[in-house]
Nucleic acid binder design. Structure first.
Ligand SMILES: [Zn+2]
Ligand SMILES: [Zn+2]
Ligand SMILES: [Zn+2]
Ligand SMILES: [Zn+2]
Lengths: 285, 285
DNA sequence: AAAGCAGGTCACGAGGTCAG
DNA sequence: CTGACCTCGTGACCTGCTTT
């Protein structure tokens, strides 16, 4: 696939993305999850396109996880890697998500409610005229935890949500354009939810993370193993194809073979089933 | 103290020991061992209060403790066996241990306070998707001096303490999350010790390692061998039980048999004694 | 003034490097 | 392969300007 590139108003030099830009979460469940949450409306369309790409690149996500009997406990996960945008000293402060990455927004930057990170990233991008490149298909998901893995897609998202030098709003925000739901006075059509939406938003990330971790911990389908399987399969087929023409089994033999094969299959598939069960047990209910 | 090299080859060949050095060696070393264990244990008690990491890997550490239980003296440890952190020119700098190996941490890498070594190792591991294998039981202790001996267990420990691409923290550390005790602003498990205690901490790790290694290198009682022994024993008993009723030995025959059995026993036990000697020689003095 | 954002600052850490 | 060292992108704060 050709690699999309950006030459915005000011773009010239090239910068290399790190090759580990895979979004480390979101599997097939993401759609239903997204549907439930209004906060992600803006990117719903984009997410739908991601589904393909994500499911086929799943194996790359398992780097470092195979053969490790990792037992992530939920308490630790929620402590360590769940977003904690709300500082403990300002419980009163409302959470407003960045339109680019979903982190806590710090204000209305370049025309978009965004976080300090995305603001700085966008500023740097338009200042230094950097041309980013996506090493994949240019559809990387941009969320807080992986926003730094693909600069191209982050910048693309910035533009998509409307960041621009021209959208800069100077000075004080007019009083009446402020609202409870959008303290930064951006366009008022996006977040019709009350404050409960914020907690749902956070909970969502929590769930996403949990599922991702559970998957990592128990999915044994790695690239290596797939290749190995393919090799095994082809050699097996070769071996079988030759004698198959000259061999005649009796019905009894066939029956016996069927039984033995079934037993063999059952034996082989048991671990996989166990893994699925383990995975299911990890999904928060 | 220089690093003792315990390569696999070294361990394998180390059971050779000339017989004549046996007795004096043994007695002398035995004393040393006891003294060291005195120091060793109290410090461990103190460590448990301050160091989460140690208690977290208690299981592994027990290997080193099992045969050892005595009374303490703190001053002595810091006096005679302190091992300095890598840099001796910055005495003012506070010591913060790597959560993986206990070496001096260089920062908050992949979500965990860790040293340069573990950081680089983890990066390499997740980049190249290397699949490690443990040559033992997958419970190797991972501490500074032996962290390079088992990649599998080192990586496992990395994951266990929470290293992950998703836990990466970019940018400057928020001011309010910094504290005197935890310069890296990581999670809330702090190390309220002064630097002297940290040096002791480091020294302890090395001592633990030495003893454990010495034990591992010369203890022949592995799980495998125990099982083998049990099998041998039961078959032997079966074989014996049958003829024992119908056989009558003369006194002379019995005497001869006693002698031969004693000789056999002596022959069998010699390697064990040698191993004890070798173990004693490895204990730092 | 007061509020609020663009841009600058620079502590940090990811990733690369390369002797050992 | 390891890890001490280096480079540079990141983002939490800060400063100064613009608009009410
Ligand atoms: Zn953002
Ligand atoms: Zn991308
Ligand atoms: Zn370490
Ligand atoms: Zn191991």
């Amino acid at each position: 696939m050709d690699q999309p590139s950006y030459s915005a108003a000011n773009v010239a030099s090239s910068s290399e993305c790190t090759r580990d830009q895979l979004p480390s979460m979101f599997l097939h469940r993401q759609q239903s999850i997204e549907n439930r949450n209004l906060l992600f409306n803006q990117s719903f369309h984009q997410l739908q396109q991601h589904d393909n790409q994500l499911s086929q690149s799943t194996e790359a996500l398992h780097v470092g996880y195979e053969d490790i009997d990792q037992k992530p406990d939920l308490a630790k996960i929620s402590k360590e890697s769940v977003i904690q945008p709300a500082d403990s000293n300002t419980p009163k402060q409302q959470f407003v998500p960045c339109k680019v990455c979903g982190d806590r927004a710090s204000g209305f930057h370049y025309g978009v409610t965004s976080c300090e990170g995305c603001k700085g990233f966008f500023r740097r991008s338009i200042q230094k005229q950097i041309e980013y490149r996506c090493l994949r298909d240019g559809k990387c998901m941009v969320i807080r935890l992986n926003r730094n893995r693909c600069q191209y897609c982050r910048f693309k998202k910035c533009l998509a949500v409307g960041m621009s030098r021209d959208s800069v709003r100077y000075g004080r925000v007019p009083k009446r354009s402020k609202s409870v739901d959008d303290p930064f006075g951006g366009s008022s059509d996006l977040y019709p939810d009350d404050s409960a939406a914020e907690s749902r938003h956070l909970a969502l990330y929590d769930i996403i993370l949990n599922i991702s971790q559970a998957h990592h911990a128990h999915c044994a389908v790695t690239e290596d193993k797939i290749k190995l399987l393919q090799r095994k399969h082809s050699t097996l087929m070769q071996r079988i194809s030759i004698p198959s023409s000259q061999v005649n089994f009796t019905d009894e033999q066939l029956e016996t073979q069927k039984l033995s094969m079934w037993s063999c299959l059952a034996h082989s598939i048991t671990p996989a089933v166990n893994r699925v069960v383990e995975f299911a047990k990890r999904v928060p209910s």
